[in-house]
Design a protein around this nucleic acid. Sequence first.
DNA 1: CCAGTTTGCGTATGGCCTACGCCTTGCGTA
DNA 2: TACGCAAGGCGTAGGCCATACGCAAACTGG
Lengths: 246, 246
Amino acid sequence: MPDDIADELPHALNVLWGRAKPKGRGRTPALSLERIVAAAIALADEEGLAALSMARLAERLGCAPMSLYRHVTGKDDLQLFMLDAAPGPPPEFGTAPADWRGALTRWAVELFGVYLRHPWIVQLVSSPPVDPGQLAWLDAALRTLGGTPLDWRARFSVVMLVLHYVRGAAQLVTSVTAEPEEGADGAYAALLTEFADPGRFPALARAVEAGVFAPQAGPGPDDDFRVGLDHLLDGVGVAIERAARA
Amino acid sequence: MPDDIADELPHALNVLWGRAKPKGRGRTPALSLERIVAAAIALADEEGLAALSMARLAERLGCAPMSLYRHVTGKDDLQLFMLDAAPGPPPEFGTAPADWRGALTRWAVELFGVYLRHPWIVQLVSSPPVDPGQLAWLDAALRTLGGTPLDWRARFSVVMLVLHYVRGAAQLVTSVTAEPEEGADGAYAALLTEFADPGRFPALARAVEAGVFAPQAGPGPDDDFRVGLDHLLDGVGVAIERAARA
DNA sequence: CCAGTTTGCGTATGGCCTACGCCTTGCGTA
DNA sequence: TACGCAAGGCGTAGGCCATACGCAAACTGG
């Protein structure tokens, strides 16, 4: 059965899960999968996902574009490897942490940091995780709830809830921050004041007026993230109490 | 000031906000912005965002590729128009609905439906909304909280929380459902059972074992969405009670 | 009827991904 | 030591893509 399903899989998965065949003879490689993936991640970090092309990547590695295809079956494959490698290892928890809230908070904050360092990850994710790197993060998140009375389905639901929030918040911060010049956040505020007609968008106009979009009215983007996360975890707490009573 | 900022803006925004100049004379247009945008949306709906190219779009409209550029400055512009038009109008609420939870739930469910009908929207969003269509949705969401004691900053935080969740959930459902063959959801479950080694990913292995990823173990994806949303709104309820006491 | 204005679009450029096949390299073996 | 062959590096070329530029067609106000 394993072989049966392995044949249908993207090549990258078989490599990531250690199913690559060992090769003895042949020319000594000047390139390696690790070097390629690391260079691709660096390129995407520095210049954005749009700047990541096989040609530019080869240039950075000092090789010809087609050389890359000896180690990667295509660009999709490469991106799968990138998604696996970029996040690094998740924080470690025991099987049943006493303080689920602290653990889950730490998990979320660290993942938030990963997404801020590698904004392209969020743009790239398009299917549920199937690589060891992402599954390790998923497993760590599930473990934070090991001490709670939630069943596995509810735990998964909670983890996805947090995951979605972290991704959305990171994407928002990234898109607002990533602009070239200094007054980027201010630029969005200016746009809204320009367009938020109180007659057409009453609530929005009031919010703009209240300075919600003003750059750094007090708390930074990182604090905003924590505030939303706390709201979310309050909800999880309610669910846990309910499950404990049942 | 308006002109000053308008010149720096993407062309699409000036059109969307009604700042286009009226044109009297000249050849009668065979194409129109509305037809182009509608065709682009239909194409993206049917064949996915990757299939949306200026050439294929022109083919579908029965015109030459370059003709499109008379109505749209480029592909980015076109996508901005698509993002504005595709969601349609948001549900209507008064300025201060008595039942914030019902209103916000309705808003979330309808937006979820929009994302399921147009999965490409989630992939396309890369910056805060600046077009009338999306701002209308944002305004509607803010209005659902009009009767609560939350200040504007907190309301915005809650709305973004819900928005992130809706997007994430929709993307997940889409990516799992969109696969060609019948057993797509089952395929993911099969992959996980294959790879979720209990030694390496203990929590994940237990979850798989518990049938969390089994296709339709009972509730459908729509119910999963509602469950997560309820958790989330529980948290919002806590915040509202806290604000009421203060 | 003409001048001016706007639309439609043919051509061409430069980027992208990648199939294919050749040459090079170095190990294992005889 | 010499040979064969497996495997890496890469040149070429083809097919998509977005789009700058400029000309021809169509319509309209005077």
